[in-house]
Structures are given as C-alpha cells and as structure tokens.
C-alpha cells in the first residue's frame, strides 16, 4: 500500500528505459542491416570482435574522452572564476548573473548554428574580427580545429552551469568561518586555499560527474558544427553510433557499440555518483 504512489513512475521508467537496453543487447548479438531485408541472423559475439578491431571506434572513443573531460575541466575552471567574481556585492549583480546564465539556456542546436555561422565563419565570423588586431587572418577554425571548435561551443554552454553550482557552494559557506580566519590573520589567498577550496571540493566533484554525464551524450554540437568531420576527426561515440545506425543502417554493429559504451559508462559513473551523493548527504535524507 505504502509503495503504491511510487509504482506508476517506477514501472513507466523501467519499461521506457530498461527494455530498450535489453533489446540493444539482443540486437548486438545479431547481424542485421536494415537495407538488406532478411539479413537478420545470430552471429553472437562477432559484432563485439569487430567493434574492438575497429580503429575508427578507438579514435572516436578517445575523441569522446577528450571532448567530455576537456570541456568539463575548462568549464569548471572558468565557472570557478566567474563564481568567485559573482560572490561579492556589486552593482547589477543580478543582471550579470542573468546574462551569464543565458548561454546555458539557449537551445543547443541553435547555439551550435550560432558558433558555426556568425561566430566561427572564416570570412564573416565575429571571432576572426575580434582576433584580427592580433594578426589572425581568415582562420578556418572549423576545418582546421574541428574538435576544438565543438568544444568551444560546449564550454561556452556549460561554464554557466558550473558557475551556478559553484556559486551555490560559495553561498552555502558560513561567513563566520571566513570572519574567524580573517581575524586569525589569513589573507585572501590563504582563505581561498585553506577554507574555500576544501569547502568547494564536493561541489567540484559534483560538477565533474554531472557535467560528464550530460556531456558524454553530446550529439547536437557535433551534428551541427562538424558532422564529425573531417573524416572522424571530431566525431564522438553518440555521433559515430548514430552514423552507423541511421546512415549505415547497421543495427547489429551499432547495438554492440552501444553496449560497449554503456558498460564503460556504468563502470565510471556508478562509482563516481555514489561518491558524490554520499558526500552530499542527499542519500541520508530519508529518515
């Protein structure tokens, strides 16, 4: 009886999120190409063997790690700087925060288009115009630095989130601690290093884990800005699997890749999430 209110949400989630995943495992053991009807047959672990022999898959996996971790870390550092700047009383603080949070809200597809066209365009882009006094000419950022171009858009979108998270962390810090430290003779840097950073540690951990969870699924930016190209230079796993499934119609192969990605994610994420939520005490609230 007591769990009755819980059941609809639980059953719905199990059906919509778990059954497809089981089917993914099922399909990953088959050879099945949608363009060749009747090609469906059991091949067991052949798909997995070819996934691990696929050098492109390895390159794309590496891209995914670089894109995810690089974006998360840079966004964290920038977010920390902004959070520290915003954690003071000054004129227009609310407006500044609203301005800063906007890049996070903008529809990722629109953001990607914005970067691809008006900002990073070699001839008409704002970036080259701003950088022209520094001797940068008509640099074709997207074709010369495809991965970095995608990451710039991602970092631009995720820095505000890190800022909000770390600002919440800073504001949860008791001011009497800082006052006590100041009376004990600690300077601004000492306070930051000895008190602020240790206090922020769990917020930084949370930002890393959450940013990674959301960013490892990045699809919009790759799809809109580079289409994974040139070649697979800027493709990540979601985009690569999408290509295999919806452009190559290779259900078996893409399912096997999906399973590999899930296993890797689960290994990293269960560990990291438990850690973070334990340190936040969100878990203990029930009693």
């Amino acid at each position: 009886m007591r769990r009755a209110p819980l059941l609809p949400a639980l059953i719905f989630t199990i059906i919509v999120t778990q059954i497809p995943f089981l089917l993914t495992i099922f399909y990953s053991l088959q050879s099945w190409n949608l363009v060749r009807p009747g090609s469906q047959q059991w091949v067991w672990f052949d798909n997995y063997v070819s996934v691990f022999q696929d050098s492109q898959f390895r390159g794309v996996a590496l891209n995914t790690v670089i894109m995810t971790l690089g974006s998360v870390l840079i966004a964290l550092v920038l977010g920390l700087v902004l959070a520290l700047l915003l954690n003071r009383h000054f004129i227009g603080r609310g407006v500044v925060r609203t301005l800063l949070v906007t890049p996070f809200l903008i529809t990722p597809v629109a953001a990607a288009l914005l970067w691809k066209t008006t900002l990073l365009d070699p001839t008409y882009g704002l970036i080259n115009f701003v950088l022209s006094p520094f001797g940068v000419g008509e640099e074709a950022w997207i074709s010369d630095f495809p991965l970095a171009s995608v990451m710039v858009a991602l970092i631009w979108q995720w820095t505000p989130f890190m800022m909000l998270l770390l600002l919440a962390g800073l504001q949860s810090m008791p001011t009497d601690q800082i006052e006590a430290a100041r009376m004990d003779g600690a300077g601004a840097w000492a306070i930051f290093r000895e008190l602020t950073l240790p206090h922020l540690r769990r917020f930084i951990e949370l930002g890393t884990v959450l940013g990674a969870i959301y960013l490892v699924n990045t699809f919009d930016a790759v799809y809109m800005i580079t289409q994974g190209g040139p070649g697979t230079a800027s493709a990540n796993l979601p985009f690569y699997i999408y290509q295999r499934a919806f452009l190559g119609f290779d259900i078996g192969q893409s399912a096997a890749m999906g399973v590999v990605v899930v296993v890797m994610t689960i290994i990293v994420a269960t560990f990291a999430l438990r850690l973070v939520f334990r340190s936040f005490g969100a878990a203990e609230g029930s009693n």
Binding site: T13, T17, Q18, I19, P20, F21, L23, T24, F26, Y27, I213, V216, N217, F219, L237, P238, I241, Y242, A245, F246, I251, S254, A255, G258, V259, V261, V262, T265, I266, A269, T270, L273, F277
Partner: peptide, 17 residues
C-alpha cells in the same frame, strides 16, 4: 539516476526499430 547515466545512443536503435 542510473537511467540518466545510460547513454541515450545505446537505446536509440531498439527504440527506432
């Protein structure tokens, strides 16, 4: 939460089918 950690791309194939 764990359902949010499953990469969406792993589910898209069977969902499509």
């Amino acid at each position: 939460i764990s359902t949010k950690m499953l990469p969406v791309v792993a589910a898209i194939v069977p969902i499509y089918v």
